[in-house]
Amino acid sequence: MDTTEDFLLPGSRQRRLVDVMRQKGHVTVVELTAMFGVSRDTIRRDLQLLERQGLLTRTHGGALAGDGLVARETRFQSRMTEQTGAKRSIGRAAAGLIREGETLILNGGSSTCAFAAELGRLRDLTIVTNNLMLPPAVPSGVARSIFVLGGTYWDSAQITVGAVKINSSARISVDTAVIGVTGVDEAGVSISRLEEAQITVEMMEASRRVIVVADSEKFGASAFVHVADFSRIHYFVTDRMPPPDIAEALAQAGVELVIAPG
């Protein structure tokens, strides 16, 4: 049952909650109940109200800031229409790094779909993905086999979320992981949702080399989950030169920076 304090100045508490979200980017319900001295039910009602107002996005056990301080998840169909020219150029440049006969693993997102669409010159590829929009994007005759990973279906991102393996015992080992991300800053690359980030980390761990594809709109964004330092990445393919802090961090980590032709 709610305590008496739960009903004191809810408007003031909600304004303060928004301020905390803007400062921290992500907070949990447990943190907020301790901070404001109210019940979990009260905090959940606050979060529901603030989400309806567009001020935050609720997550499992907490919430994300809704003002761009932490990159938010967007529906896959919306992402497919953003930066399309840049993504095609990036996909073409990244496809130039692939050799015939390779085994590839690709995560969700429009950037990896754009990459897949540019593989037409290659043959005998084996492709593993959790991206349900990717198999139709692969040109005919390119892939010897395409494996779609099982798991929970996410409509908003058109992906499956589960362990990176073909069956209950056999784990995957691949030549190259081609990874799309939500944010890129001097600390590395990040993704907005925890479960998607976990499968992306597994994909990178299963690969001999990692290619990150990210358009310049991702620069300076820090999403909820940090998935890799630049030291884990071999190639970073983008559409323009990153800001100095990111460019320096890439260089120090020995990452090969590929700028796609406009």
Results as ranks from 00 to 15, higher is better:
E256F: 03
A137R: 15
N130L: 04
R52N: 11
S231H: 06
M241H: 02
F36W: 05
L69Q: 05
T3A: 11
A221W: 04
W154A: 00
F7Y: 15
Y235N: 14
A94D: 12
R16C: 09
I43H: 02
R123E: 11
I146H: 02
P243K: 04
L47H: 08
D19A: 15
S207W: 03
G109P: 02
T3R: 13
G85Q: 12
G220N: 09
A206N: 00
L104S: 05
I159W: 00
A221E: 14
V189D: 09
L132Q: 06
V27I: 15
Q198H: 07
E196H: 11
R13E: 00
G61N: 10
T74S: 15
R208H: 07
R232K: 14
R88I: 14
P242C: 10
D46N: 13
S168H: 06
L194V: 12
T59K: 01
E256L: 06
P261H: 01
D124G: 00
V142F: 04
M21E: 02
D175N: 13
V225M: 13
E73N: 02
R13P: 12
E100Q: 08
S192N: 14
S145F: 11
V30N: 11
D19M: 02
R193I: 01
I43E: 03
I98G: 07
D229K: 13
E31W: 13
R121E: 14
T42M: 08
L64V: 01
L132Y: 05
M203P: 04
E102F: 09
E248C: 01
V29H: 07
I146Q: 03
P10M: 10
V181H: 02
V174S: 01
A251Q: 10
S89F: 03
A221D: 11
D46G: 07
E202P: 11
V164L: 11
S192I: 03
Q48I: 00
T200Y: 08
S140Y: 14
G11H: 13
S169M: 09
V201Q: 14
E205M: 00
G61D: 12
D2M: 04
L49R: 15
M204A: 07
